[in-house]
């Protein structure tokens, strides 16, 4: 079960035992909570008094997830989309270009 890494070791069984122990402790702490708190108005989301929309209307679609992250990296993504043009000529150009750079770097490194 145990594997040695450069800095120490990894034992999944120890991890699982620790996970179970922590889960039990968390469950015990949770059990101390007031039972009557569950259910009722207080557990519903509060949207400034506005009624909660149906689940169908509020389900976030894939292209909207991480919108902020993608918007923050707009410049990077614009470049990457241009790079991934879908044109096979571009694919070949990248391949040959990388090979050419490898030639230059390799021979330069050996000469130096």
């Amino acid at each position: 079960m145990l594997i040695k890494t450069v800095g120490g070791y990894w034992d999944p069984i120890v991890w699982i035992v620790a996970f179970i122990v922590i889960a039990i402790i968390a469950y015990i702490i949770r059990a101390f909570g007031k039972r009557e708190y569950k259910g009722g108005e207080q557990t519903k989301p509060f949207l400034s008094g506005v009624e909660e929309p149906s689940k169908e209307k509020v389900h976030v679609r894939a292209s909207n997830i991480y919108w902020g992250f993608i918007e923050a990296l707009k410049g990077y993504y614009d470049y990457m989309k241009r790079m991934h043009s879908g044109v096979v000529n571009d694919y070949v150009a990248w391949f040959v270009g990388v090979a050419a750079i490898m030639f230059v770097v390799m021979f330069a490194a050996v000469i130096i």
Binding site: M83, G86, W94, F95, V98, A99, M102, M106
Partner: peptide, 25 residues
């Protein structure tokens, strides 16, 4: 060395190493 770079570029591309990975998706 020339043979090595040709092998390297070809197999790295076939392995899907970026920036020669575009065929993979």
């Amino acid at each position: 060395m020339i043979a090595l770079i040709l092998f390297f570029a070809a197999f790295a591309m076939k392995a899907g190493a970026a920036p020669m990975h575009m065929w993979m998706p």
